[in-house]
Design a binder for these strands. Structure first.
Lengths: 220, 220
DNA sequence: CCTACCGATCGGTAGG
DNA sequence: CCTACCGATCGGTAGG
């Protein structure tokens, strides 16, 4: 499961969406409960006993599915960091205006989180200091750089108002978390989709010098 | 120090800004180091031994200044939650258009964080589950509601584009964290101020139906 | 997947 | 503000 490709992982997550929770593998149920607990209590605040209890097994049984607690975090990081990074890098190389590229990325990103079966809020905050997660730290840097480059291009070409690119990155992350939260309250999958669309428009209007282009960009 | 008023607390923080760090009281140095450590490692990830070591004292000495680790968190929460909440509530009652009220609050909020001598990133995330911090949880709810009400008013009067108010709240929080981060890299106090201004414009442009009003609103 | 258990580290206290 | 130390909880292992 660690040497699975990103595409295979995406396919697996896609499959989980259409599978009733009771039929998920223990491994996936561990990931789901760990994600929810880490989202509210943070990585260090969610003990392996908490996670095991939520799954309905004893704490040492976790280690039959993951070599360590950190490996649970790493499996969630692949979904939250590795896959979006691969996507952002591909998109940064694409043709098109900055607004078009940013709109395309936001469409993908917000949809990814609206449909995500695991609660991935706040995860990147957890790896700032944690040893053994260097790979994800590096990927997160690449992800930020890819988005910042798009914003920077837009500002340089006079397409966007002057703004610190890091601020747009931070805003997009915040929106993703809000989408995850909305998607998890009740069965609000539809609400999360509507939110995704409004949020992308909000960001583009905030950036574009000529806001009348916003709709055209969004539909392209 | 626990029964100090918000205004006295603001005055104390203002004074710290113009005092060299070596001359801060031990209590304030504990708050500063605890804030930085909690910001990167989270509350549960920052041990009392870590905090004491950063201050340069032994772990049990912390308890001469704070009754418990949670009291350290509570002192930081007053700055991050209680004071902004009081401000937001006052502002929500003010006359003026939604854009004017939101602009006024953002101006105050972003400036508060740009000048804050402690690192307050991510703090509210810590109190979701923590017992004994109910007061701050309630205040945070009031804060969100006050901002959401302003956004809701703007949408209802056709001044703002339709958008989920919770999304604007989340965006503002993200911007505050980015401002705190910027203010702490090097001596980038000036950069943080410039960022504050650009960020407020960015949010207002994203909201306003008639974006040409943005400049006028911001200066009012 | 379980019971039994390990050494390390946690927040906090006693007493000076 | 220190040394010495406490019970509780942590992540993880052994062995079935």
């Amino acid at each position: 499961m660690t040497d699975i490709t990103n595409d295979e992982l995406i396919a697996h997550v896609e499959q989980l969406r259409s599978t009733p929770r009771e039929r998920w593998s223990t491994r996936d149920r561990i990931l789901a409960e760990a994600g929810s607990l880490i989202a509210v209590r943070s990585y260090h605040g969610a003990s392996t006993r908490d996670i095991a209890a939520a799954v309905g097994i004893r704490q040492p049984s976790l280690f039959n599915h993951f070599a360590s607690k950190r490996e649970i975090l790493a499996a969630l990081m692949r979904l939250d960091v590795s896959i979006p990074t691969e996507r952002a890098k591909t998109l940064a190389r694409t043709d098109g205006s900055a607004a078009q590229r940013l709109a395309a990325y936001m469409r993908w990103d917000f949809d990814w989180y609206a449909r995500m079966p695991f609660d991935l809020r706040g995860l990147p905050e957890e790896l700032v200091d944690e040893p053994g997660l260097e790979r994800f730290r590096a990927e997160l840097t690449s992800w930020k750089r890819a988005i910042e480059r798009i914003v920077h291009d837009g500002v340089e070409h006079g397409e966007f108002h002057p703004i610190a690119p890091s601020l747009v990155v931070r805003t997009m992350t915040a929106i993703s978390w809000e989408i995850v939260r909305t998607a998890r309250v009740g069965r609000a999958r539809a609400a999360a989709s509507a939110l995704s669309h409004d949020a992308a428009d909000f960001v583009l209007r905030g950036l574009l010098v000529d806001p009348r282009r916003s709709n055209a960009v969004h539909r392209s």
